[in-house]
Amino acid sequence: MKLTRFFLFSVFTLSVLNCAELFSSKEDQNDDQLILALLVGARCPTTSVSTPTVGTRFDFTNCTGDANLALAGSGFQASNVTLSGGIVGTSNNSTIITNASSLSNSGGNKKASIEIVYQLNSASSTISAILPSTTSFGGPGFLIRDIRADKIVNGTSSAFGTAGAPWSSSVGQEKTLCLEIHEEGAGAHIFGWQGACATVDRSAYQFEEEDVIVILSGDRVALRINGATIKNMTIYNQSIGTAGSFL
């Protein structure tokens, strides 16, 4: 009898959530997905990190349950992705974006810092890391390619002013990048490194562009995953780069 009651309650709860989704706003839908994710146990493991600064690491290789629900339970909205050893995307329509602000809380200007571990499936595969992003995936960022990263400004990618040496092809191999964008005056400073944020030289950037004319209107972290797998991502609460003044 208890098992029957539990089953009926579960069915009723899921039905209510499904009905609510039909008549709610997009924000309400995100809330419904989060509740449903908790009910069915869908999730992606997270851990707190403190090196080189405070942040949260999302392990996408060990998510459980449906991709959309698992990511919703971890604070992301997803579209056209699957889970198989990480978040798998097949085109620029394969996206994830944080549901809440993911900016650094240091200083008065907008700053966003992430570490991303990924694998590209072919030489034409790309990952667009937009930070800080609007909910419509607008904002500055990085176009990650097989042998280098380019900057994204106003929806267009181009080589960094200081591009750094290209790396050997990363197709089919796990690769780690540390990426950061700072609002500075009327524009932004976009820079990054190969390797984990905890091990890079924080005072010297391997690829960068200063004084980029762009408006940082968003506060999320977003990825477009075109023919690639995202293994894990760390979103930091503080700045990584230390060259110059970022107060």
Rank of each mutant, 00 (worst) to 15 (best):
K111Y: 00
T61G: 02
N92Y: 11
W193N: 10
Q29P: 00
I96S: 01
T98I: 01
L38V: 07
V171D: 05
T134H: 03
L17H: 03
F191Y: 14
E115V: 07
D59G: 06
A186P: 13
K231W: 02
C19T: 10
P45A: 04
L34M: 08
T4M: 10
F6M: 12
G161T: 06
E27M: 06
V171I: 15
D150Y: 01
L83H: 06
T90L: 13
T4Y: 11
T229H: 01
Q194F: 06
T156Y: 03
N30H: 06
T4C: 05
A163D: 12
S102V: 03
P166N: 09
I147G: 00
A129I: 01
G172N: 08
G192S: 02
P166I: 03
S239G: 13
V49R: 07
R145S: 04
G164H: 04
T13C: 14
S128R: 04
N237W: 05
F12M: 14
F7A: 15
R5T: 12
T156S: 09
E210T: 09
S157C: 01
A159N: 11
D150G: 03
A159R: 10
S84E: 12
D66W: 04
T47A: 12
S104M: 06
T53E: 08
V117C: 07
I230T: 02
V40K: 03
T126F: 04
T64C: 05
I96A: 03
T53L: 08
S122M: 06
T90D: 12
Q206A: 13
F23Q: 07
G107M: 09
T135R: 07
A20G: 15
S84P: 00
N18L: 15
S102H: 02
W193E: 02
F160K: 01
S79G: 03
S158N: 08
N109P: 00
E208Q: 12
I181L: 07
W193Q: 08
V49Q: 10
G55I: 11
H189W: 14
D28A: 10
T47R: 13
F6C: 04
G164A: 02
N232H: 14
A70S: 13
S157V: 03
S122F: 06
A78F: 05
A186G: 07
S122A: 15
A196N: 14
T82W: 01
M1G: 15
N237Y: 13
A67E: 04
T126L: 06
A222M: 08
N80G: 00
S106T: 15
I235M: 08
F137H: 09
R57I: 07
V88M: 07
T90R: 11
Q173I: 02
T64N: 12
K2I: 09
L143E: 06
